[in-house]
Measured scan of single mutants.
Amino acid sequence: MQYKLVINGKTLKGETTTKAVDAETAEKAFKQYANDNGVDGVWTYDDATKTFTVTE
């Protein structure tokens, strides 16, 4: 399945996608991506759209 990440950071904004077997695996990949880019915020997930959002 394909999952999307929407980033609403202080210095980084945008979107990225990943393919993963489940939401938990996608979340780990997205959190690593956010961490690598210095984004630390509040996470939400919408199962209907398979979209994670992180807001600083």
Score class of each variant (00 low, 15 high):
55 T>C: 06
40 D>S: 13
33 Y>N: 02
41 G>C: 02
42 V>L: 10
20 A>E: 04
48 A>Q: 10
34 A>L: 10
50 K>L: 11
42 V>N: 08
31 K>V: 06
44 T>N: 08
45 Y>W: 04
44 T>W: 08
37 N>S: 08
27 E>N: 05
41 G>I: 01
15 E>G: 08
32 Q>E: 09
3 Y>R: 00
37 N>C: 11
28 K>R: 12
53 T>V: 07
27 E>P: 00
9 G>K: 05
35 N>H: 15
55 T>L: 05
34 A>H: 02
51 T>L: 04
34 A>R: 01
14 G>W: 15
51 T>E: 04
17 T>K: 06
13 K>H: 10
22 D>I: 03
19 K>H: 13
20 A>H: 05
29 A>F: 15
31 K>W: 07
31 K>T: 05
39 V>H: 04
12 L>G: 08
51 T>G: 02
27 E>R: 14
10 K>T: 12
12 L>S: 08
29 A>S: 10
2 Q>V: 15
8 N>G: 04
42 V>H: 10
34 A>C: 14
39 V>D: 01
52 F>Y: 06
12 L>P: 04
33 Y>P: 00
17 T>C: 10
31 K>D: 02
52 F>C: 01
53 T>E: 05
56 E>T: 07
4 K>R: 13
14 G>C: 14
8 N>H: 11
51 T>R: 03
15 E>N: 07
4 K>V: 12
42 V>W: 10
1 M>G: 11
36 D>A: 13
18 T>P: 02
42 V>Y: 09
29 A>I: 15
52 F>D: 00
42 V>S: 09
54 V>C: 07
37 N>H: 15
54 V>P: 00
7 I>L: 09
9 G>E: 03
47 D>Q: 11
24 E>D: 10
29 A>C: 10
15 E>T: 13
53 T>F: 09
43 W>I: 03
51 T>D: 01
26 A>D: 00
42 V>E: 11
9 G>F: 12
9 G>M: 14
7 I>M: 07
54 V>A: 03
35 N>R: 15
55 T>I: 08
53 T>Y: 11
53 T>C: 05
10 K>E: 08
14 G>F: 14
2 Q>T: 15
28 K>Y: 09
14 G>Y: 15
38 G>K: 08
54 V>M: 04
34 A>G: 03
36 D>P: 02
25 T>S: 13
19 K>P: 05
34 A>N: 03
35 N>T: 13
3 Y>E: 01
20 A>Y: 06
51 T>H: 03
29 A>G: 05
56 E>Y: 09
8 N>F: 13
53 T>L: 05
5 L>Q: 01
23 A>N: 07
